[in-house]
Amino acid sequence: MIINNLKLIREKKKISQSELAALLEVSRQTINGIEKNKYNPSLQLALKIAYYLNTPLEDIFQ
């Protein structure tokens, strides 16, 4: 099972779900679904998340 630290990292960087969704060009519901482990992001989306949060991919999804 993948450990998902997206919410923790996003909140630590003081970025809202809506702000991150806008940067990634996805819906806020997509971010919410990823954070609640209801949706697994594509590799492309996971890499974009890591880029915009300036955090290694391995720290977000373990």
Rank of each mutant, 00 (worst) to 15 (best):
Leu47Lys: 12
Glu19Ala: 14
Glu25Tyr: 09
Asn40His: 14
Ile34Ala: 01
Ile31Pro: 00
Lys48Tyr: 04
Ile2Ala: 10
Leu8Lys: 15
Glu58Cys: 13
Leu47Ile: 12
Leu53Asn: 00
Lys13Asn: 11
Lys13Leu: 14
Asn5Ser: 06
Lys14Pro: 03
Asn54Thr: 06
Ile34Asn: 02
Leu8Ala: 15
Pro41His: 01
Asp59Arg: 08
Ala21Met: 04
Leu43Phe: 12
Glu19Pro: 00
Asn5Thr: 04
Tyr51Asp: 09
Lys14His: 13
Ser16Asp: 04
Leu24Thr: 12
Ile3Glu: 09
Ile60Asn: 00
Leu57Gly: 02
Asn54Trp: 05
Ser16Arg: 06
Leu24Met: 06
Tyr51Phe: 12
Ile49Phe: 03
Ala21Val: 03
Leu53Phe: 07
Tyr52Met: 10
Ile2His: 10
Gln44Cys: 14
Gln44Met: 09
Lys48Cys: 09
Leu20Pro: 00
Asn37Phe: 10
Gln62Cys: 11
Ala46Ile: 06
Leu6Glu: 00
Leu57Asp: 02
Ala50Cys: 06
Ile9Tyr: 09
Glu25Ser: 12
Ile9Asp: 01
Lys38Cys: 13
Leu45Trp: 02
Asn4Val: 05
Val26Met: 04
Ile60Ser: 01
Gln62Gly: 14
Leu43Asn: 06
Ile60Gly: 01
Phe61Ala: 03
Thr55Ser: 08
Lys12Pro: 01
Glu19Ser: 10
Asn5Arg: 10
Pro41Ile: 11
Ile60His: 00
Glu25Met: 12
Arg28His: 08
Thr30Arg: 07
Tyr51His: 11
Ile3Thr: 13
Pro56Met: 07
Leu20His: 01
Ile60Gln: 02
Ser42Trp: 06
Asn40Met: 15
Ile34Gly: 01
Lys48Glu: 06
Asn54Gly: 13
Ile15Phe: 08
Leu45Glu: 03
Val26Cys: 07
Gln62Ala: 12
Asn37Gln: 13
Lys7Val: 06
Ala21Phe: 03
Ile2Phe: 12
Leu43Lys: 10
Pro56Lys: 09
Leu47Asp: 05
Ala22His: 11
Ser42Arg: 06
Leu43Gly: 07
Lys12Trp: 08
Asn40Lys: 15
Leu43Ser: 06
Tyr52Gly: 03
Thr55Pro: 03
Ile9Pro: 01
Glu58Arg: 08
Arg10Asp: 05
Ala46Trp: 14
Asn5Gln: 06
Ile15Gln: 03
Glu19Lys: 13
Ser27Thr: 12
Gln17Arg: 09
Ala22Asn: 11
Glu35Pro: 00
Asn37Ile: 04
Arg28Pro: 15
Leu23Gly: 08
Ser18Asn: 11
Pro56Ile: 06
Arg10Val: 07
Asn37Val: 04
Lys14Tyr: 07
Ile49Trp: 02
Leu20Thr: 02
Tyr52Ser: 05
Asn37Asp: 05
Leu57His: 05
Gly33Leu: 15
Met1Ala: 12
Ile31Asn: 00
Lys48Ala: 10
Asn4Tyr: 04
Tyr39Lys: 07
Ile34Pro: 01
Leu20Ser: 00
Ile15Tyr: 07
Lys14Val: 04
Ser27Gln: 05
Phe61Trp: 09
Leu20Trp: 02
Leu47Arg: 10
Asn32Ala: 15
Lys48Met: 07
Ile15Asn: 01
Asn32Ser: 13
Ile49Ser: 00
Leu47Val: 11
Lys36Ile: 11
Arg28Thr: 14
Ser42His: 08
Tyr51Asn: 07
Asn37Cys: 13
Lys38Glu: 14
Pro41Val: 09
Leu6Tyr: 00
Gln44Ala: 14
Leu43Tyr: 11
Ser18Pro: 06
Ser16Asn: 05
Glu25Trp: 07
Tyr51Ser: 07
Tyr39Gly: 05
Glu25Ile: 07
Ile9Val: 10
Leu57Gln: 04
Tyr52Phe: 14
Asn40Cys: 15
Ser27His: 06
Val26Arg: 01
Pro56Phe: 06
Met1Pro: 12
Asn54Val: 05
Gln17Met: 10
Lys12Leu: 14
Ile34Val: 04
Tyr52Cys: 08
Ser18Gln: 11
Ser16Gln: 05
Glu35Gly: 01
Tyr52Pro: 00
Ser42Asp: 09
Asn54Ile: 05
Gly33Phe: 14
Glu25Asn: 14
Leu23Gln: 09
Phe61Gly: 03
Ser16Met: 04
Leu53Glu: 00
Glu11Thr: 11
Ala50Tyr: 02
Arg10Cys: 09
Leu43Val: 09
Asn40Phe: 15
Thr55Cys: 08
Arg10Phe: 05
Lys14Asn: 15
Glu11Ile: 13
Glu19Trp: 06
Lys13Arg: 12
Asn37Ser: 12
Ile31Thr: 01
Ile15Asp: 00
Ser16Cys: 04
Lys12Ser: 13
Leu24Cys: 15
Lys36Glu: 15
Lys14Met: 10
Asn40Leu: 15
Asn5Val: 05
Lys38Tyr: 14
Glu25Phe: 07
Ile31Gln: 00
Leu23His: 13
Lys14Thr: 05
Leu24Ser: 05
Asn54Cys: 10
Leu8Thr: 14
Glu19Arg: 14
Leu47Cys: 14
Thr30Trp: 10
Leu8Ser: 15
Ile15Thr: 04
Ser16Lys: 08
Ala50Asn: 01
Ile49Leu: 06
Leu45Arg: 00
Leu8Val: 15
Pro56Asn: 08
Glu35His: 02
Arg10Lys: 01
Lys13Pro: 02
Ala50Glu: 05
Asn40Gln: 15
Arg10His: 02
Val26Asp: 01
Ser42Tyr: 04
Glu25Pro: 04
Lys7Arg: 14
Pro41Trp: 04
Ser18Asp: 13
Glu19Ile: 07
Gln29Lys: 13
Ala21Arg: 02
Ile60Trp: 03
Ser27Asn: 08
Ile31Val: 11
Tyr51Met: 11
Ile2Arg: 12
Ile34Tyr: 04
Asn37Tyr: 09
Lys12Ile: 11
Ile34His: 01
Glu35Ile: 03
Phe61Pro: 02
Gln44His: 11
Tyr51Thr: 08
Arg10Ala: 04
Ile49Val: 04
Glu11Cys: 08
Gln62His: 11
Lys36Ala: 12
Leu20Lys: 00
Gln29Thr: 11
Leu6Trp: 00
Arg10Met: 08
Leu8Tyr: 10
Tyr39Arg: 09
Ile2Thr: 10
Gln44Lys: 14
Met1Lys: 12
Leu6Gln: 02
Glu35Ser: 02
Asn32Val: 15
Ala21Leu: 02
Leu23Cys: 10
Ala22Leu: 12
Glu11Gln: 12
Arg28Ser: 11
Lys38Arg: 13
Pro56Val: 05
Leu43Ile: 11
Gln62Glu: 10
Met1Ser: 12
Ile9Gln: 04
Ile9Thr: 05
Ile9Phe: 08
Lys36Trp: 06
Ile34Arg: 01
Lys38Leu: 15
Ala46Leu: 09
Leu8Asp: 11
Glu35Lys: 01
Ala22Trp: 07
Leu57Met: 12
Ile15Ser: 01
Ser16Trp: 05
